[in-house]
């Protein structure tokens, strides 16, 4: 029983980690919490769904959905965020403008998705079974698709980790997020690097949407709660930290699984809120967040 719950927790935690990673990537590059993330992810998932319906092949649709997610992320930065940053940057609106604008974009994308595909629940099928593994007579709630979710998330996280740590692009991404001006003076094309950060974030969200959706249904709002969990995970981890996002996601996923198992499903977010509050009161910038203002 304990192991079953743990496995389920890791599977949903992996998804939260991906969502949290997407948020952290954008936060680090642009200092914006991208509420449109769940909209971008759902749109790329719908496109993945379309491709899988016409090709009858999930494995073709998956990488294409990820590609679409990356392109969407890049476009949101180029067409939307740059305009926003150049404008609403003074007066009472300035502090909330990024939140409001990305919420607006979320609404826009979701209504657009609704206009095209309708609001009915769709099934984005994967060839992997959604039925739990059986050991003799005992069937656990952890299915091959859950296993795939864990593996895919781990692979994506490992790829991002390697890029950040070992490549020139990763160095440029880190430098641009820590000290954009110094990076610029060293010759890094910061706005281009930033855009790559948005593309990475978009692809991480798209992976999350495309691997989790086969376990439930697809609708314009189907990734919203996932996004909220990802946000909580990112905040717990400290919005600045990639490692924090992953750990925050896993902790939250496992925590939620145990709450679901032993207390009941309806209070999960309430408990999430309480955990979040407790963490932030102890550490107002999350567990792995930087305490000092780095511009100081």
């Amino acid at each position: 029983m304990f192991i079953d719950t743990l496995l389920i927790g890791i599977s949903s935690g992996a998804i939260y980690s991906l969502m949290a990673l997407a948020l952290v990537l954008v936060w680090r590059s642009t200092r914006v919490v991208n509420f449109a993330q769940s909209g971008q992810a759902v749109l790329s998932t719908y496109i993945g769904y379309e491709i899988s319906v016409s090709t009858h092949n999930y494995w073709i649709s998956l990488p294409l959905a990820i590609l679409v997610g990356a392109i969407l992320g890049s476009l949101v930065d180029l067409l939307f965020m740059r305009l926003l940053m150049g404008r609403a940057n003074s007066g009472p609106i300035a502090e909330i403008a990024p939140v409001i604008a990305t919420l607006g974009l979320l609404g826009l994308i979701q209504s657009f998705v609704g206009l095209i595909w309708g609001n009915a629940f769709l099934h984005y099928a994967s060839p992997l079974s959604g039925k739990g593994f059986s050991f003799g007579t005992h069937t656990i709630p952890f299915s091959p698709q859950n296993l795939f979710i864990v593996v895919a998330s781990a692979v994506v996280l490992a790829i991002f980790g390697a890029i950040f740590k070992y490549t020139d692009l990763g160095l440029a991404l880190r430098a641009s997020s820590f000290q954009p001006e110094i990076a610029q003076l060293a010759g890094v094309r910061v706005s281009r690097v930033r855009n790559i950060g948005w593309a990475f974030a978009g692809s991480a969200g798209a992976v999350a949407g495309a691997v989790i959706t086969p376990t439930s249904t697809l609708s314009p709002n189907s990734l919203d709660l996932l996004f909220v969990s990802g946000f909580i995970a990112a905040v717990i981890g400290g919005l600045d930290s990639l490692v924090g996002a992953v750990i925050g996601g896993l902790v939250l996923g496992v925590g939620f699984a145990f709450i679901l198992q032993y207390i009941g499903g309806s209070v999960t977010f309430l408990v999430g809120f309480i955990i979040l509050m407790a963490v932030l009161l102890a550490r107002p910038r999350g567990i792995f967040g930087h305490k000092v203002n780095r511009r100081a």
Partner: peptide, 26 residues
């Protein structure tokens, strides 16, 4: 090339990463 005021390095990166930054574009 401009070396800005106040020890313009990136504290979160290692010394060799800070050095590498200057040659990334080359």
């Amino acid at each position: 090339v401009h070396v800005s005021e106040g020890k313009s390095v990136i504290p979160e990166l290692t010394v060799s990463e800070n050095l590498a930054l200057g040659g990334l574009w080359r």
